[in-house]
């Protein structure tokens, strides 16, 4: 456990030195800040707009940080050859993969909290006290970001950076469209297509499960039971992704 933490801390410190991270963060803050300029709308609509834009910005820019952070966490060790020395130390490869993931959790958490603080600050500035539903939506976005990060990290253990970026973004988009895809497949009568669709629906994580923002923005409450179920759903995918990452990295020569 201690070794995982040592690797995680090092990963976190390394990430803090990357400029891309700050650029993405600044863009996120700018987009959230820009949402307040919709002052030509009525006060009620303006708040909805701030919430809607902010949730989307936190999720999108968080996804960028999750993908690019996880991508660099493993490939930079291999490219810079720091991995030779690291693997000669008394650590196992699963220490390495889990340590890298914990490091990513830390960096995601810091970025996420900064974006959230800015968002909440903006709401308070508009004299709107954020309710618990807003925090439920934010929490689910964070679990979604962890899931995106774990998948990219798992892919980084056995694929090239280029493939990983394309596949991670593809999965991010497809993961938000699976519900629509499911509806389309239900209408088809082709058994093969139906089977294939069902299989894809089961394998590809449904990121829309984490998107409760539409309900929150219009004031529809979301039950704690749904939040609990969705978090469990996310955690299962995260554990599977990390286990795949460990398995692949144990087979990989560096």
């Amino acid at each position: 456990m201690k070794k995982i933490w040592v690797i995680a801390q090092n990963t976190f410190h390394e990430s803090l030195r990357k400029r891309t991270l700050y650029i993405v963060l600044v863009f996120g803050l700018v987009v959230i800040g820009a949402s307040k300029f919709f002052s030509f709308l009525t006060a009620q609509e303006e708040l909805k707009m701030i919430q809607d834009v902010s949730f989307s910005a936190i999720e999108f820019f968080g996804a960028l940080i999750a993908i690019f952070g996880a991508l660099g966490a493993i490939s930079s060790e291999i490219e810079k050859r720091t991995i030779y020395t690291l693997l000669s130390k008394p650590i196992t490869r699963y220490h390495f993969v889990i340590g890298k993931f914990v490091g990513q959790i830390l960096i995601l958490l810091v970025n996420f909290l900064l974006l959230c603080l800015f968002f909440v600050g903006l709401l308070l500035f508009k004299k709107s006290v954020p309710n618990i539903e807003i925090f439920k939506a934010l929490f689910l976005i964070f679990v979604e970001l962890l899931l995106i990060s774990s998948i990219t990290l798992a892919l980084a253990t056995f694929t090239s950076d280029a493939f990983n970026i394309i596949f991670s973004f593809f999965l991010y988009i497809v993961g938000h469209l699976t519900s629509y895809g499911r509806q389309l497949i239900e209408r088809t009568e082709n058994i093969i297509l139906k089977g294939l669709g069902d299989m894809l629906y089961t394998i590809v994580p449904n990121y829309e499960n984490f998107a409760i923002r539409d309900k929150v923005v219009v004031g529809v409450p979301v039950s704690w039971q749904y939040v609990g179920k969705t978090v469990s759903y996310g955690l299962i995918y995260i554990v599977i992704a990390i286990l795949i990452g460990i398995y692949c990295f144990q087979k990989r020569e560096v």
């Binding site: 070794k3 690797i7 030195r17 050859r81 020395t85 000669s88 008394p90």
Partner: peptide, 28 residues
């Protein structure tokens, strides 16, 4: 075991003592 690789590459943002501390912690 102690290992020195060919053309050693390390985390270049660390100082010498920080590098030794990092590896020392991996040795518990």
């Amino acid at each position: 075991v102690g290992f020195l690789p060919e053309n050693p590459y390390y985390y270049d943002y660390l100082t010498g003592p920080e590098l030794l501390k990092f590896y020392g912690r991996l040795f518990d």
